[in-house]
Design a protein around this nucleic acid. Sequence first.
DNA 1: TAATTCTTTGGAGACGCTTGAGAAACGTTT
DNA 2: AAACGTTTCTCAAGCGTCTCCAAAGAATTA
Lengths: 341, 341
Amino acid sequence: MASTIKDIAKRLNISISTVSYALNGGPRKVPEEVKAKVLAVAKELNYRPSRVARSMVTGRSDTIGIVPPDVIDNIFLSPYLHMALNGVFNEAGRLHQDVLLFTRYSESERDEMASMIVDGRVDGVIFIAPHFSERDIELATSLHSACVSISGFPLEGVHTFSVENEAGVHLALQHLYDLGHRKIAHIAGRLDMHDAIHRLQSYQAFLRSQRITYQEEWVTMGQFTIEGGKRAMNTLLSLPDPPTAVFCANDEMAIGALMEAYALGKKVPEEISIVGFDGSPDSEHVFPTITTVKQPISELGAAAVRALCALIEGREPEDRSIFPAELIVRASTSSPMEHVS
Amino acid sequence: MASTIKDIAKRLNISISTVSYALNGGPRKVPEEVKAKVLAVAKELNYRPSRVARSMVTGRSDTIGIVPPDVIDNIFLSPYLHMALNGVFNEAGRLHQDVLLFTRYSESERDEMASMIVDGRVDGVIFIAPHFSERDIELATSLHSACVSISGFPLEGVHTFSVENEAGVHLALQHLYDLGHRKIAHIAGRLDMHDAIHRLQSYQAFLRSQRITYQEEWVTMGQFTIEGGKRAMNTLLSLPDPPTAVFCANDEMAIGALMEAYALGKKVPEEISIVGFDGSPDSEHVFPTITTVKQPISELGAAAVRALCALIEGREPEDRSIFPAELIVRASTSSPMEHVS
DNA sequence: TAATTCTTTGGAGACGCTTGAGAAACGTTT
DNA sequence: AAACGTTTCTCAAGCGTCTCCAAAGAATTA
């Protein structure tokens, strides 16, 4: 149906190779006159080179694969992933790379998934926030496939891009501390993810450095979801000695916490301060707007793409891999004193 | 580097075709004994079939392409697109289809874009909310490539999936009308998109049916964005005779309108009621929560995938193409009377 | 004019896989 | 023993493209 390079050759009575050279401005020179004719016929026949055939012979597909975190359904409703994808897509477009999103819908397909990564349709893979248990990434590296990760666990030979978690957490907690808070709880994310672990550890480190006693029950699990944030906040507010401030490992949990606080009749920030993490658009749309630690997620995505392309082409990636965090103070935090009095 | 079907054949001293048949349970039978041996060796050599080579000969890639709306940068931050992609990915996974997201980063690459659609890497394409001026979709059909659209303009031979816009708009406006509103403004979306046009027309039709005089200045453009919603709301509230209610063509603009209303000291819903469209998660996170018309966007995406797969396999799509809208009454709407008095 | 060099162009092999055509081996039937 | 059907397997032809190699032609030199 679709026309091929052969059709063009036949039409002009020249060889296939000449056509190929003409179309690609190929390694060999082709007289301008012939070139023009080839291009004209190509246009006339509505010729489109088959990327598949080209991949076959060049071994390159100019396509990068994205492996989103392996969570439950509806994964594409996560703001974090959106921001990451946003950066990835913009940069991929700029670098003339297409993006193949790997979908997986059950654990049992894990192996099939793994083989997709190395079946030749992508030149390299970006893992977004992979779980600790994620073996695909090891498989990919073992097969010498180019791969990088965003917010992943440090892994031998895998370039990992992430935010300065420790510094970010410090900014958030210092902010609360400076406001006068001493009873600061933490709603942690999924502890099989690197960022969640790192943020929890940084939280503990901060308490230690400020000589605040670490209270086991002030750390609750929120699974990085709004629902999880609600549940966690509910738990925290039921404590005999509830905290005056809550630091959440991401904005979604902060939103959940906010909603739950209101549901329980607690005013934010008057009765309890809330800080999020990520700097998602949503954090600014809720009421009150949420104080949060912004990480340049889109830039992480873009940097990952650049690094991956470098690896594919055999260059050494030049991007730094740790990105700065920035505190954005909004309306969900205030001093606890004013209202205690 | 990677092992091929040939390596397996050589190792076992059998023909390449036998290996192929064994691996695929192919068209021809292969004795269990041989099959077992082949599979064992395949595993040992860590063999992964090359999808590229397979595509080459079968002409199928088991991959569907997605063309997101051709808007400016950071497109992946649109909740609408997320919900659509969410449905698409889930369903694609279920049907064992991979998803290639087409990125495009400039108008000048339009032609390159078009050829990507038909270069053999995808079996079919889903256009999400294509613009009126989008020619790619026509190109795709003219090349007999399978394609469907979500919220697109009706086009000969292209299955289009969309929500019952007219009914949805009616629900929203009737709700406002029943509350007592008579001065109802409309913040419209991008008028090069089908949904935006359709919703504007439905708004006008409703006013006509209720014999409310259509006020030119009560229709403002919001471009489907939060920023646009803010600007539009600003314009509306500056009118000498401002409306008591605003119906927005999507939730993002409703959020923007909400923010702007607050910024101008107008209370929602006490002084002005706001209704959105889409039923995005965000519409429930803002304060006050927004009354909105929910459309099953994810289901639209899923249905589009099913239909596309049917087309690819030469079957007739069975899904209905118009989906119901549902009014979700929340806190952003109330009767105007109470406060006028 | 013949020999040499340079330029241009066509031929053909690969890439890894699928699959139809047909060969070989075997057992069964007449 | 011949004829036949089955089963099991090999051969080889592609799929569309890229690119090396060699052949043909043109230009230069002896």
